Each structure stands twice: as C-alpha cells, then as structure tokens.
Simulated assay, not measured.
Amino acid sequence: MADVADVIVLGGGVIGLTTAVTLAERGLRVRVWSRDPAGATTSAVAGALWWPYRIEPAERVGVWALETLAVYEELAAGACRQTAVVARSPADGSLTTGPGPGGTGVRLVAGVHGGERFAALGPWAAELKGAVEVAEGLRVVLPLLDMPVHLAWLERRLVAAGGAVERRAVAGFAEAAARAPVVVNCTGLGARELVPDAGVRAVRGQLVVVENPGIAEWFTEADSASAATTYFFPQPAGLVLGGTAEADDERREPDAGTAREIVARCARVRPEIARARVLGHRVGLRPVREAGVRIEAEALPGGGLLVHNYGHGGAGVTVAWGCARAAAALVG
C-alpha cells in the first residue's frame, strides 16, 4: 500500500523535513504529516543565518551545530558548482545573489557578528574556519539559507528517498501511531498542546524585507537582555532586516512601529538602508523550550515508539542535521 509507513514525522518545518530525510535515506518508509505547507511554517520566515542563537542546552548545541555546519558547507560547495546567480540591477544597482533554480538554497556569505568575541562563545567556535576578531566584532563566513528554496529542496530529497509529505493535522500521537510503529514529534510550538509541554514558549520575531541597495555581506548585533536585535541578511528576494525577540508575544501580524524601528536600527549600521524600498514584512514565532531542545524517546500505549525532537528556539536551521541524526539514532 502506498501509505504504509515505518515512521510518521509530525511537523513539516526544517526540523521535521531534515529528520524525515535522514530516516528515509537510512531505508525507512517515512511520511511527514504537516498541518501547513512548508512555505507557511515558522522555518520559512527565518532569516536563516547559521549561528547557535537562543537555544539550549549549551553542552549539546555545539555538537549539533557543527554537524549541521559541515552539511551546509557541502551543500554550498555543490551549489557553487551548479549555478550561482550574482547580478546587479542596471536600473538601481540592487544586488541579487543565490543559487540557480532547483538549488539547495545554501550559500556561504561573509559578515560580522557585532560586539562578539571568541571568549564569550562555546568550544564550538574554535572550529569556525577563518573566523577573526575585528574592531566591530567577529568576522566569519557562514551558511546563509534561502528558506523557501531550502524547504522545497528538502521535500524533493525526501520524495527521492521514497518518502512523502501530507497536509494533515493531528489531535494526538495515537492517530499517527495507528498508522506507523514509530512517531517522531517535530511540531515545534505545537508541542505545547500536543505533548503537552508547558515549558514551550513563543518568542516573536518580526522582520522587514527591503530592496537590496548593494549590500553583499550580513551583519548581526544582539543583546540577550533586550527584545530588540539588529541584523540584515542579503537574500535573493531582498535584504532581510531584523529584528525582535519578544517572549510570550503571539501576535502574527506585523507592527508598523516595530518595522520602522527595525529599519532605523539597521540604517545606523548601513545608512543606505534608510532609503531602500520596503518589499514586505514577516512575523514568526520561535518555539523556545525552557529546558532546551528535547530529543528523547518514550513508549506509546500499544507498543509504539514516540521520539521527540522539538524546542529549537531561534536556531532550528543551525542544528537541524545534528538533531535529526540524534533523533534518528533513537528510532534505531
């Protein structure tokens, strides 16, 4: 039967799809059940620079992040060998960069983490190739992902491995367990009600997308004590400006005042941003878990296995492959 599965993965964001790909490429029959299409998930809204941001536990995050970094570096190298689109508009000088059609959406891009120093980071930072401290902060080349492209690529890779994605919401794990002996919970913020896990909280992130006035490098500056952050990422669809980290704020509509503040903060770093035409606004709710990422297995009534992989906060992209492999190891 076409719908027979060894594993059902709940959740179609970057964590769910990466976990599903990992399992399918190990020979398991995998189906992803996702309430929303990949392009409507929180993952699709992410600015998507690789960096361990707002994620715990610190002692495990470094390993997961470095495993994921190695994968992205391979994908970026492959994209460069295929087609890399880098063009400046003759009309306004705006810059467009990214992989060609059908690519992975992963590029390696240089930038600066403002105010950052190696001494304040974990042991994982010693593995960053070519990273140097400069007056402004830490300068390094890192993966920057075009998430709509990357999510579509993950879905294609899953299908190529024999898996499938279904638009389907679930009210409980038993529904999935009735269709497969293993269920993997990658529901992000949805785990709050589904598990239920009261330790999962929404941290709101708002972004502004503007026409790129010719900026080819990214920049970030974050204060963990503030809900306001400053960053810009050159993406193919425009320059993504951020941002916010508003705990327990679940407003999904962009706030006009917040958008103006984001543009103003970014323009203090690069004044030309102040004159850039606004193309759109984005809001995403990061699934932060107070106890950190949960990768854990438990038995289900009837003998099934439930594996949890949720609580990645603002760094799901950064740890996706490392966490997928850790979860897959629990599946067996």
Rank of each mutant, 00 (worst) to 15 (best):
V71H: 07
R325V: 03
R251F: 07
H281M: 06
T19V: 09
P90Q: 13
V331T: 03
G314C: 08
P196K: 11
E127Q: 12
T68M: 10
R275D: 14
A119R: 15
R139N: 02
G242L: 02
E217F: 05
I273A: 12
V86D: 04
A5P: 04
R29N: 07
V319Y: 02
G162I: 14
L241F: 08
D92W: 14
A315K: 02
H281R: 13
V182E: 07
R35A: 15
N212R: 07
R260W: 00
V209Y: 01
V85M: 11
G205M: 09
V317Y: 06
D6Q: 02
R60W: 07
V140R: 03
L69H: 01
A126R: 10
F118M: 08
L95R: 11
A160Y: 12
G130D: 10
V208E: 04
R168V: 11
Y72F: 15
A267F: 05
A171T: 15
H150T: 09
A315L: 05
L108V: 00
Y72N: 00
N185E: 00
V319D: 03
A84N: 01
V61D: 10
E175W: 12
M147T: 14
D3A: 13
R201D: 02
V183L: 06
A176Y: 07
V45S: 10
P37T: 09
S94V: 01
A315R: 01
A125D: 13
